[in-house]
């Protein structure tokens, strides 16, 4: 295999055209490497080479976005590179946004592997971290050598379609995708070191930043519960005896929909739990302890509710990815709406 052909994107400043006063220059395709491209080329050695450089003013890109995208994509198409590298942009905000935006266009429109790099506070990071790899750099061009030394190997891996390791290994900003890898030291040792730093007030890096959970505003209350159709949903894994759909005991890949027309009571002979996260004996003895069909039938007869919906939905919450349960719930919620269900009682173990 010959050298990989690399196309490099930089702004007017790194091309030596000028600073802010020249930020309006239109995109231009040049042959060969320039500015930081020279450092990349020496890093690439015999593996790859920057054959062309695109130079674009930061103001031009950000203010005339659609035009800039179109012009640049045409240039990329004409060069047909194996790899597209943008920046690094360090803490230059508009340059960073431009690098990430155009890299994402090249990746998504043309399917060419891309890489850029910038400082963590550059707005380009938060805008694009979940869409492409962005190498973490220092906040100024003084960190150029360090940035190039991370970008060269990662960009080669991307160009060759090799497996990309975890962010901590490869040096990119975490993308939100959790990737396993083997650390140098065992977890307990890392915990002791982290605690010593934390107690001393020194900087430390958590291995898992706490998430923000999103919120949905509450729906209005039901007007008259005695007329309402009530549906039961559970994450406690209640299924007909024998688990006919073979819902997994953990990390469930599906949900169950079961008809309870005429079912007045769940018994040990008819229902059980598929859930692997708790002692199943109590639910297996009497599944009403998790999915209270018996009492809701009683309420139905007494007129305390309109009626109990003839289907219930069930999943195993145990170890099941939040995303999967979300997909399940979106799907059965549509069915519930179509079936005219007014309210839902969702039980969890």
């Amino acid at each position: 295999m010959g050298k990989l052909k690399v196309l490099h994107y930089i702004n007017q400043f790194y091309a030596g055209i000028g600073g802010e006063e020249m930020a309006d220059v239109a995109p231009e395709l040049r042959e060969g490497a320039m500015g930081p491209g020279l450092a990349f080329n020496s890093g690439y050695g015999d593996e790859a080479e920057i054959t062309h450089t695109i130079v674009c003013g930061d103001s031009f890109f950000n203010e005339r976005l659609d035009e800039a995208k179109e012009l640049i994509l045409d240039m990329v198409k004409s060069v047909k590179p194996d790899l597209f590298v943008a920046g690094p942009a360090f803490n230059a905000g508009r340059y960073g946004v431009a690098c990430a935006t155009i890299a994402y266009e090249v990746l998504s429109q043309l399917g060419i592997p891309v890489l850029t790099g910038m400082y963590e506070e550059n707005p380009g990071v938060d805008m694009f971290r979940d869409k492409l790899y962005i190498v973490a750099t220092r906040n100024s061009a003084a960190g150029m050598r360090d940035a190039v030394s991370k970008m060269v190997p990662l960009s080669l891996k991307l160009a060759r379609g090799e497996t990309i390791g975890a962010s901590a290994e490869e040096g990119y900003h975490p993308t939100g995708v959790r990737v396993n890898f083997f650390e140098k030291e065992r977890g307990s040792k890392r915990a002791v070191k982290m605690l010593l730093k934390k107690m001393a007030g020194k900087p430390f890096t958590t291995e898992f930043p706490m998430p923000d959970f999103d919120r949905v505003p509450p729906n209005p209350a039901v007007k008259d519960i005695t007329k309402a159709t009530v549906a039961l949903v559970t994450s406690g894994g209640i299924v007909p005896k024998g688990n006919p759909d073979r819902i997994e005991s953990s990390s469930a890949s599906k949900y169950g929909e079961y008809d309870i027309t005429g079912v007045m009571d769940l018994t040990a002979e008819t229902y059980e739990t598929a859930h692997g996260g708790y002692d199943p004996l109590y639910a297996n003895q009497d599944a009403d302890r998790v999915l209270p069909v018996d009492i809701l039938r009683e309420f139905e007869a007494q007129g305390k509710i309109g009626k109990l919906h003839n289907k219930f939905y069930t999943t195993v919450g145990n170890g099941t990815a939040v995303k999967s349960s979300k997909v399940f719930a979106e799907e059965f919620s549509r069915k519930l709406v179509n079936d005219g269900v007014d309210v839902v009682i969702l039980t969890s173990t």
Binding site: R215, L336, V344, L346
Partner: peptide
């Protein structure tokens, strides 16, 4: 799950033991 039901426009009540998780989700 409870949020998706709510998002679909159906009032939903979450009956669960570990209410802090319910609050968090």
């Amino acid at each position: 799950m409870v949020k998706e039901v709510e998002r679909a426009g159906i009032p939903v009540v979450h009956v669960c033991t570990v209410t802090p998780i319910s609050m968090t989700v």
